[in-house]
């Protein structure tokens, strides 16, 4: 799950070839901006059929937490 997510994450933020780790604070990437955020939310909806609410999304800091949030939504 995590490996596939990181691959999708890199594709979405156009970060292919960059080093992305589960513990990374993704908002600190230079590629991160409002378009990136919108793209990430859209990707998660498309690939995992999960919609993360705006407020909840703001609390998520790391890639690993994103994966957790998706898995949590999936079990609901």
């Amino acid at each position: 799950m995590q490996e596939r997510f990181i691959s999708l994450f890199k594709e979405t933020l156009e970060m292919e070839g960059k080093n992305v780790q589960p513990g990374d604070l993704f908002r600190e990437y230079e590629e991160w901006d409002s378009m990136g955020q919108l793209s990430l939310i859209a990707m998660i909806d498309e690939e995992y059929d999960v919609v993360i609410e705006g407020k909840k999304f703001q609390e998520i800091q790391t890639i690993a937490q994103l994966v957790e949030a998706i898995e949590l939504e999936k079990t609901k």
Binding site: T12, M35, L38, S39, A42, M43, E46
Partner: peptide, 9 residues
């Protein structure tokens, strides 16, 4: 509904 070009469908 806001979707970047890559995600419109």
């Amino acid at each position: 509904k806001r979707l970047p070009l890559k995600f419109i469908n």
